[in-house]
Nucleic acid binder design. Structure first.
Length: 264
DNA sequence: ATGTCGGCCCCCGGCCGA
């Protein structure tokens, strides 16, 4: 008997403000597990009941006041929850769990990194690079099948952005970030599921700025969100897609959900 | 350079971070 498992990841930009579209997404797609980033709430005011009513009774939260915050909600049991601080400053940017089948699921919100791509002029950029470096050290020591998902805030490939040339100096697509992300990927042999299923040079974006007059018409997107799998886990992935519809919904997040289906 | 969001509060307009 084969068992399918559908896992979603979404930077929601305030889970309380957008709980309505989260419910809509869960009703439409019925993933087994949803990983959220930028929940922007402490755990006490996380909309736990709304998720419970849709069957997502297993909830592992790592929230904080005002900014950041991550969560995993699930219809299947999750255990051994873990919260790592890859920035060493107390911000809530990671939560990990283990599934019943042994798979580890790690949900991360990498710092955006500010506007200036220079760690001397902009400490936030340095913190972002240091965060990715700590993830790299962590990846080197990984010895369990793992799925790493979330908002990495880096679009590595030329076809991951609307204009490679115009974004070379824009934080999220600078060579220094792309190289750091490359070292992270190599540290565990991570398989980029997005590009396994939508290979270059195909267009694949997960984020469109709120500042565009018409996000769909200008289509100035970036692929900032990712799902990376250990090699053995990637073998079990049978489908992957992004849910672009939700960017056009009322009061949307600027990010869209990613979905991967596994046959285990 | 701009644009638009959500959340916050010496409470509702002006910031911060994205």
């Amino acid at each position: 008997m084969t068992d399918t498992l559908k896992i979603a990841s979404w930077n929601i930009n305030s889970v309380r403000f957008r709980i309505g579209i989260v419910e809509q997404f869960l009703k439409n797609e019925a993933p087994d597990i949803l990983c959220l980033q930028e929940t922007k709430t402490v755990d006490e005011t996380f909309p736990a009941d709304a998720f419970r009513q849709l069957g997502y009774v297993h909830q592992v939260l790592n929230g904080q006041r005002m900014h950041h915050g991550v969560a995993i909600v699930s219809r299947v049991p999750i255990a051994e929850d873990d919260r790592l601080d890859w920035q060493a400053n107390g911000e809530a940017r990671h939560v990990g769990v283990r599934l019943g089948n042994g798979l580890r699921l790690e949900n991360v919100y990498v710092p955006a990194g500010g506007d200036i791509p220079d760690r001397d002029l902009n400490p936030k950029f340095g913190q972002k690079l240091d965060f990715v470096e700590r993830m790299t050290r962590w990846s080197e020591g990984l010895d369990v099948p793992t799925l790493l998902v979330g908002d990495f805030n880096i679009a590595p490939l030329e076809c991951d952005v609307w204009s490679h040339k115009q974004l070379l100096d824009v934080v999220s697509h600078t060579p220094i970030e792309v190289e750091a992300l490359g070292r992270l990927q190599a540290a565990h042999g991570w398989i980029d599921l997005g590009r396994r299923f939508v290979p270059p040079p195909m267009r694949l974006y997960t984020w469109w700025s709120y500042r565009a007059k018409d996000w769909a018409a200008s289509d100035r997107g970036r692929r900032l969100d990712h799902m990376w799998a250990s090699p053995a886990v990637a073998e079990a992935a049978v489908a992957h897609r992004v849910y672009e519809d939700s960017r056009g919904w009322l009061k949307p997040s600027d990010h869209i959900p990613l979905l991967t289906e596994f046959r285990l």
